[in-house]
């Protein structure tokens, strides 16, 4: 019984002293999950290094016969790939920063004050997600055209950072709610202002949620095609999603380049995820406050 107890305890929260068997089991499960996550991505890699632009092949090898990096060379040097990446990156980084700042403060208001309209405000934020996004493209275009935002990144940055706000507020508000009020109160007793307490107590404690929100903003802007397609209509401005579209045809796509590019645009995201995982997990969470 005692052993069983500690086994479960270990399973549901941090553990020390796991049995080797359980450790192995966990690793096996995770390795299987990793294979499931990785395999389709590896197939994309296969297409990108297969000679002669073929999507299909009658073989299942990961590294096909005659594999080469021709598609990578062509996408990097014959196309404006770096320009597209750079454009996407600047837009995305600006968006994510603005989005996180806007959402973190708004969510604080939702979490700590019971002002009238708060409940309906939260429902309203949800409601904005309920209209299928493609339907809003026509009116957004018309508004953007009236404001002279077509063919500028200004329009895109504003639209993206606003577009992610509802999600961000909900997640952050939920997270702030788990932080005991007493922590702020004690800081305020020590002489901090309300915003000072927010800045010094709430924000550092919320790094996992802030990281999620940042990632979400980043991913949304990075992968967006619909909005960029109608807002940007000049070659110099194109983001990578629009750039990639140009190597696709109605019936005919240069699959090798398409897949090569897809893998390469995943790299910045993977790097970001890798570094942000530190924030997602450790840092100043409540758990470690305990020491």
């Amino acid at each position: 019984m005692q052993k069983k107890q500690s086994l479960y305890r270990w399973f549901f929260f941090r553990s020390r002293g796991d049995t080797p068997f359980i450790r192995t089991l966990i690793h096996i499960i995770l390795i299987f999950a990793c294979i499931a996550a990785l395999y389709p991505a590896l197939r994309v890699l296969t297409v990108s290094i297969r000679p002669g632009n073929r999507l299909f092949s009658t073989t299942l090898e990961i590294i096909p016969a005659g594999a080469n990096l021709e598609a990578y060379r062509r996408i990097l040097f014959d196309k404006d790939f770096f320009l597209w990446l750079w454009n996407s990156l600047t837009i995305t980084v600006a968006t994510s920063l603005i989005g996180v700042i806007l959402a973190s403060t708004s969510a604080y208001a939702f979490s700590r004050w019971r002002f009238p309209g708060r409940k309906s405000g939260l429902i309203f934020l949800l409601a904005t997600q309920m209209i299928p996004a493609p339907m809003l493209m026509v009116p957004i275009y018309i508004i953007a055209a009236k404001l002279g935002l077509i063919n500028t990144w200004r329009g895109l940055v504003i639209a993206y950072s606003v577009g992610a706000i509802p999600f961000s507020i909900w997640i952050l508000k939920g997270y702030y709610d788990t932080i005991p009020l007493e922590l702020e109160q004690s800081a305020m007793i020590d002489g901090a202002s309300r915003m000072g307490a927010f800045y010094r107590i709430i924000l550092p404690l919320s790094t996992p949620a802030l990281a999620i929100v940042f990632l979400f903003n980043f991913m949304m802007a990075w992968n967006d095609y619909l909005l960029a397609r109608i807002m940007l209509q000049k070659k110099d401005l194109l983001t990578w999603t629009l750039g990639l579209r140009s190597i696709q045809d109605q019936f005919h796509t240069q699959w090798d380049m398409f897949c090569a590019a897809a893998l390469m645009v995943s790299i910045p995201v993977m790097i970001l995820f890798f570094f942000s995982s530190k924030w997602l997990v450790s840092g100043l969470t409540l758990g470690s406050v305990k020491g």
């Binding site: 959402a103 403060t105 708004s106 208001a109 004050w113 934020l125 508004i143 639209a159 915003m195």
Partner: peptide, 26 residues
């Protein structure tokens, strides 16, 4: 509720312009 309003205002304005207005158009 001065402080919460100040906290919410920037996001609210953005939402009005780029989310609420298009929904009204629809």
């Amino acid at each position: 509720y001065a402080l919460p309003i100040m906290l919410l205002a920037p996001a609210a304005i953005g939402l009005m312009l780029l989310v609420v207005a298009p929904i009204l158009y629809e």
